[in-house]
Design a protein around this nucleic acid. Sequence first.
DNA 1: GTCTATAAAAAGATAGAC
DNA 2: GTCTATCTTTTTATAGAC
Lengths: 182, 182
Amino acid sequence: MPKEDYVPVLFSLFRQYGYDGATLSKISAATGLGKASLYHHFPGGKEDMVASVLDHSDCWFQENVLQLLASEGSPQTRLQKMCDRIHDLYAGGAQPCLTAILETGTGRALFHDRVKALVTDWIRAIANILVESGFDESLALKRGQAALISIQGALIVSQALDDESLFLRTIQQLPQVLLQAD
Amino acid sequence: MPKEDYVPVLFSLFRQYGYDGATLSKISAATGLGKASLYHHFPGGKEDMVASVLDHSDCWFQENVLQLLASEGSPQTRLQKMCDRIHDLYAGGAQPCLTAILETGTGRALFHDRVKALVTDWIRAIANILVESGFDESLALKRGQAALISIQGALIVSQALDDESLFLRTIQQLPQVLLQAD
DNA sequence: GTCTATAAAAAGATAGAC
DNA sequence: GTCTATCTTTTTATAGAC
């Protein structure tokens, strides 16, 4: 099997266990590959695996969020569609955020720059829609940041409370909160 | 030295590296204690250490947040004081949240119940102030949840962007956001 | 591309002296 | 209460056959 086929499994493991918690034993069990096979596909070990997952994530993100936010349709509609994709990405609040967990432990030293770039792009794309909707640059940027804060916070709290409804409510309200008059 | 003296160092390590990332080698280096000495104070190893840190955190939280929120003074004043304590706890957004990182990796299986209880109590204490201020129970609870979402989200995003001003702005706005008319 | 086998390094844990 | 020394287990990584 080509290595791309294992990326979704790796994504699932690293988002759940983080860089330090996702051991080769777990990875071997989850992929069904022996350790030697894992090193065949990913000569750099775990760091290489996460890099591949991030490549895949960047690509997904570009297609499913950034392009969508910059596309045709009303701002409200585009933001709602983004929320739909985000809902799927996090399985309705049941799954943690890879980028958030990569900011912890050993992962932070290795991947902080990539995580920062992804978050920055995301905020920028949301802010662009708000500027387009008539908000000034400064407020648009703050609301873009607030959107990310809501999404990340809702994921954390939903998982701490075993209550996905918190996440669902948060992203459902997001478009109107972002677009409401100052 | 009594073991309580090492709890602050352990707190700092576990909030930064998480349960899986905080190895005995790191802990030994940070505390200045050999591994055998660590097992003298904490016979159960890392799990025991985190349990002690959580005991200490529960205590700090009780005194600095829950009692404060239930004390005398206007709702606005009490919420502002809480935000001051929270600001200190997270070093102005520079330090991650222990309870959030304990929801990841091996930590989640071990400490989820305690984390959930702490978060639940915190939300309840904020909601109580809002009920006292005239909001109905349902809205008060939602806003209490929203407060935790903002705090946790702001910590994550601030650290992803290397920008503590995001966290500062978020907790500075929190009291008025919580108390504004429906 | 996957395996078995093996090795090297690190992490977790304990015994016993001081 | 802390240390040195030791031990076990797990993790990471590689060699070489198929």
